[in-house]
Computed example of a mutant assay.
Amino acid sequence: MAAQFDKIAIWLVAFIPMPVAQGLGDCFHGDDRDFSSAPDEQRFRVRSDIVVSGFLAGDPQETDFHQCGETVKLDCATGEVLARETAGTDGMSFHHFNVGNTFPDPEGGVVDNPNEFCVNFLYDGAATNPLGPPGSPDVDMNVFFTIDPIGRMLSFRGATNAFPDYEAYASVEDGPPVVLFQQKHTLDPINGLPGGADQGVSATVAI
């Protein structure tokens, strides 16, 4: 059996769906949108992209890129812009990239893959509000991925915070995006951001 495609792109995004988000007396511009699979969507708080290519040659490699959207602080009464700043991306990474039949499970034990061409990797994303008070909690997202290029399946398991909204998509050979997950917020910023990612996301998706 041979790989059924050569390249796959995956992007993960956290965005604030409302026009303005308020918490602890501060107001900030939101991203004012719903879920969007458009690869060039630029309204987000956090976005991470990874492209894995070289499956047909039996030597898949990855490149990745991370971005944070500009944070804009507003006067809650007048809407006047008070400050602008962009968070750093130091807390965002794809890591433990591995090709083969098995993968050391980060939670213990070994993950058995369907074939020797499978790719596994971990994603950790954390970024804080650069204009928030000291100690402001991060936007958190953690996901473990398995890509099977022979069975054309992508499996993942992980978690997000309960605020804001989170989404992830995949595209094979620059084709139409496939939805991996769309996680709507269940709490406000005050209650939904503190603590680590604890809102589970998992699925196996045909690609």
Results as ranks from 00 to 15, higher is better:
Ser37Glu: 07
Ser37Thr: 08
Ala38Trp: 13
Ala38Thr: 13
Ala38Glu: 11
Pro39Ala: 12
Pro39Asp: 06
Asp40Leu: 12
Asp40Arg: 09
Asp40Ile: 10
Glu41His: 09
Glu41Phe: 09
Gln42Ser: 14
Phe44Thr: 03
Phe44Pro: 08
Phe44Tyr: 13
Phe44Leu: 04
Arg45Leu: 15
Arg45Asp: 13
Val46Pro: 07
Arg47Tyr: 03
Arg47Glu: 04
Ser48Ile: 04
Ile50Phe: 04
Val51Met: 09
Gly54Gln: 00
Leu56Ala: 15
Ala57Asn: 11
Ala57Ile: 06
Ala57Ser: 14
Gly58Trp: 03
Gly58Ala: 05
Gly58Thr: 03
Asp59Thr: 13
Asp59Leu: 09
Pro60Arg: 02
Pro60Leu: 00
Gln61His: 10
Asp64Tyr: 13
Asp64Glu: 13
Phe65Arg: 13
His66Cys: 03
Gln67Val: 07
Gln67Gly: 03
Gln67Arg: 09
Cys68Lys: 03
Gly69Ile: 11
Glu70Trp: 03
Glu70Ala: 08
Thr71Cys: 08
Val72Thr: 05
Lys73Phe: 07
Leu74Glu: 12
Asp75Met: 02
Asp75Asn: 14
Cys76Gln: 07
Cys76Asn: 06
Gly79Cys: 06
Gly79His: 07
Gly79Asp: 10
Glu80His: 12
Val81His: 11
Val81Thr: 13
Val81Tyr: 10
Val81Phe: 10
Leu82Pro: 01
Leu82Phe: 02
Arg84Met: 06
Arg84Tyr: 05
Glu85Thr: 12
Thr86Gln: 14
Thr86Asp: 06
Ala87Met: 02
Ala87Trp: 00
Gly88Ser: 12
Asp90Tyr: 06
Gly91Leu: 00
Ser93Phe: 12
Ser93His: 13
Phe94Ser: 07
Phe94Arg: 05
Phe94Asp: 11
His95Lys: 07
Phe97Thr: 12
Asn98Lys: 05
Val99Leu: 01
Val99Thr: 08
Gly100Arg: 02
Thr102Ala: 03
Thr102His: 01
Thr102Trp: 00
Pro104Phe: 02
Asp105Tyr: 02
Pro106Met: 01
Pro106Ser: 01
Glu107Leu: 14
Gly108Glu: 04
Gly109Asn: 01
Gly109Met: 01
Gly109Lys: 00
Val110Phe: 01
Val110Gly: 04
Asp112Met: 03
Asn113Tyr: 02
Pro114Ala: 00
Pro114Arg: 00
Asn115Tyr: 06
Asn115Leu: 05
Glu116Thr: 09
Glu116Arg: 11
Phe117Glu: 11
Cys118Val: 01
Val119Asp: 01
Asn120Thr: 02
Asn120Met: 01
Phe121Ile: 04
Phe121Trp: 10
Phe121Tyr: 14
Tyr123Leu: 15
Gly125Val: 09
Gly125Ala: 15
Ala126Gln: 15
Ala126Cys: 14
